[in-house]
Amino acid sequence: MSAAEIDGFADRIRKHQGGMISAWVGIPDAMLVNHLAQEAFDAVVLDMQHGMWDMPAAANAVAQVRLAGKPAIARIPVGDFASASRLLDAGASGIIAPMINSAEDARALVRTTKYPPLGERSWGPSLALNHTGLSADAYLKTANELTVAIAMIETRAALDAIDGILGVVGIDGIFIGPSDLSIALSNGDQVAPNAAEIDSAMKHAVSCCRAHGKFACAFAGDGERAGELLKFGFDFVIAGAETAQLRSGARRAINAARRVASGN
């Protein structure tokens, strides 16, 4: 995939061109990211909220993802909007911001991810220029369209404010965090990301996105759940975290070896 095709990610997701499946990585190792990027994922998300990434490691991982011909997305820590612009400078194709609970939170995200007139992103995209091959002038004119700002919806307040959040110019889409949403909707009683109440909230979120002409993303714990969410109409889903995939693969190998060795 060429740089132009990688940087067409934003256009594809905005136009709802087929359900996308992404890897999700919290272990701060660019080589691990490179391996996952060789698989048939449509993108790789670096989780800087609950993962252990720092900025230099994340910038290296963005480069590895792009080298493999895929777009890299980063989830920033809560409220760390300064990191959002730095990750875009490093060549990330999009930013996922957690705990966006109001239109004002959404506007704060836009201010640091979009250049004027939409936002106030500061200039300094040296690595992004290297990755895209664009001149400074061309990048400035197109960056707001080449990159996406994604607001996470994961609280009762966010659900109540979803139309206001989606109505903020510069917010390109939303990302549902079903585990936190289930905690919020159960008043702290349970983590149940696949509960019927969450399904209902997710379907409502997709409908709101369609009404506003925006895209919908969500986290799924595994591939089967990811497929269900694509059927709901989500444009971009996670098919489980790398830690779960790593341990699941290890268990399968161990169990297979024990089974063959025992003659069963």
Results as ranks from 00 to 15, higher is better:
226 A>M: 02
95 I>R: 12
228 E>V: 15
259 R>S: 13
131 H>P: 01
219 F>R: 07
3 A>F: 09
143 A>Q: 05
212 H>Q: 14
88 L>Y: 02
139 Y>K: 02
162 I>L: 09
55 M>Y: 14
186 S>C: 05
181 L>Y: 09
66 R>G: 01
16 H>W: 01
79 G>Y: 05
134 L>A: 12
121 R>N: 11
42 D>M: 07
59 A>P: 03
221 G>Y: 06
9 F>Y: 15
228 E>Q: 15
244 A>C: 00
157 A>D: 14
127 L>C: 05
127 L>M: 12
11 D>G: 09
54 D>P: 01
147 T>M: 09
229 L>Q: 10
92 A>R: 01
75 R>N: 09
198 I>V: 15
252 R>T: 10
193 P>Y: 13
205 A>G: 11
115 Y>Q: 04
165 I>D: 03
227 G>M: 10
3 A>D: 09
209 C>W: 09
118 L>V: 06
161 A>F: 01
249 G>H: 12
251 R>F: 08
87 L>K: 08
171 I>G: 00
8 G>P: 00
253 A>Q: 14
138 A>H: 09
74 A>V: 15
250 A>P: 00
157 A>Y: 00
132 T>Y: 02
16 H>Y: 00
147 T>E: 13
151 A>W: 06
48 M>E: 06
228 E>H: 12
3 A>Q: 13
178 P>N: 00
81 F>T: 11
167 G>H: 07
132 T>V: 09
162 I>A: 11
179 S>F: 07
140 L>S: 03
179 S>P: 01
120 E>R: 14
90 A>W: 03
66 R>V: 11
259 R>Q: 14
162 I>T: 03
239 A>N: 08
8 G>Q: 10
30 A>D: 07
149 A>N: 06
260 V>E: 13
27 I>F: 04
225 R>E: 00
116 P>A: 14
85 S>V: 13
198 I>R: 06
133 G>M: 10
140 L>N: 04
59 A>C: 03
222 D>S: 02
231 K>T: 15
51 G>A: 07
139 Y>N: 06
28 P>G: 01
202 M>I: 08
176 I>T: 08
87 L>F: 12
206 V>F: 00
21 I>P: 02
53 W>P: 09
224 E>H: 10
27 I>W: 04
58 A>G: 14
34 N>D: 14
